[in-house]
Nucleic acid binder design. Structure first.
Lengths: 209, 209
DNA sequence: GTCGCGTTCTTAACGTTGTTCACATGCACA
DNA sequence: TGTGCATGTGAACAACGTTAAGAACGCGAC
């Protein structure tokens, strides 16, 4: 039980669990998650094809581990970028976090795709993955200064966080797929994100004092 | 050459190409694209495992075909819903199309996931897929009454179409993954979409006369 | 120290997959 | 009527995910 919780456990290999996650991350980013085999991950880590089964119940669980690491890295990136922003308004910090979000996705497209590949929708199979995703959403909500209210669904302000995440998430995926706006052909993802969040910000202003 | 263009070609089977796409669509929606094997598709269509290779070069090409059909169905749904809308404003039609978009995604989640699974990013490998995706984007642009301008990237209005698609696309995927907003637990996807597009609409109003 | 035990890793095996090849079939047209 | 080409089959291959049985190692009890 404590094996899967404490990453500092030491094994024959040293720390095979971490080494597997690391190797898997590299291979996913290189080939895309669907083209990464468990056997290739084991090869990359220098162990036999059966070794991973002492650390993960199956291939999908290992990939879910990679996705969890991704969510945590993404949340970290948003937080540090928002705090380091020169902007002092909530909207300014939000924009900085949005840029960090999209840049993370564009720089790690295959990992990002894996994070939303459908493993999440198996609600019970990977509870840790869902927690990690909720944590990332939580960073966004925190930046907006809104609490995630469960009542008053009729009040439009209730929907600001979901709208924001939707926009940033959708933009990230569209950029990864290579569907840039014609006007954005020459712009960096960060600049595109600033433009898009500016449009979105017009709407948010109505709900933020 | 004309074989892959004209769906009315008749084969031994009758029209195996269409039958394969149909069977693949059913299996994808049932199990998710990553868990659908070429052999299972062939079984479902009642042919041998090698038969599909006379109609598609490999498994991914067949799945790309399913995705193309998906994009066309999605564009159709948006168009008919926007035209049938009682609203007479551009924003009203856009909202109707957005609801249709999200509803399509939620009703065909695995197909929708496949449509954005990364096959698109192989720009040259599946040109037909990219055309279909661009066509769907085109419907959105048409509804906004904006042309897809390539210059004046500095003008925020240039970014309205991409912002809109990003928001709707992101919302659809978040709903599929089961990441509903806490406040939306009891609402239908259509109602959630109306709320989110209302927030977004506040921003768009600034750019639409 | 060394005995024993549980964890970690290997080797070998099973069934399934994607894909290819040589060959069978049957429609369309000379 | 017969020839050709598009369409189908069956057997084969390597690679894959996964499992089972056993070997090596590390660590606490005597």
């Amino acid at each position: 039980m404590s094996r899967s919780d404490d990453p500092r456990d030491s094994y024959h290999h040293g720390d095979l669990r971490a080494a597997l996650l690391d190797a898997a991350g590299r291979l996913v980013e290189r080939n895309g998650a669907t083209h990464v085999s468990l056997r290739a991950i084991a090869r990359e880590a220098g162990v036999s094809p059966a070794a991973p089964y002492h650390h993960f119940p199956d291939r999908e669980s290992l990939l879910a581990g990679v996705a969890i690491d991704g969510f945590e890295a993404l949340a970290r990136a948003m937080r540090t970028e928002a705090e380091g922003s020169r902007e002092d308004t909530a909207l300014g910090r939000l924009q900085a976090a949005g840029v960090a979000y999209v840049c993370f996705a564009v720089e790690n497209p295959e990992i990002y795709r894996l994070m939303f590949s459908g493993l999440l929708s198996d609600r019970d199979r990977f509870p840790g993955l869902r927690e990690a995703a909720d944590g990332t959403f939580g960073v966004l909500i925190g930046l907006l200064g809104t609490e995630d209210r469960t009542e008053v669904a009729a009040d439009p302000a209730t929907w600001v966080p979901l709208t924001t995440w939707s926009t940033v998430h959708g933009l990230a995926l569209l950029l990864i797929e290579g569907i840039e706006h014609a006007a954005g052909a020459a712009l960096t993802p960060g600049e595109i994100t600033r433009q898009v969040t500016t449009v979105l910000g017009q709407g948010l202003k109505s709900f933020q004092p």
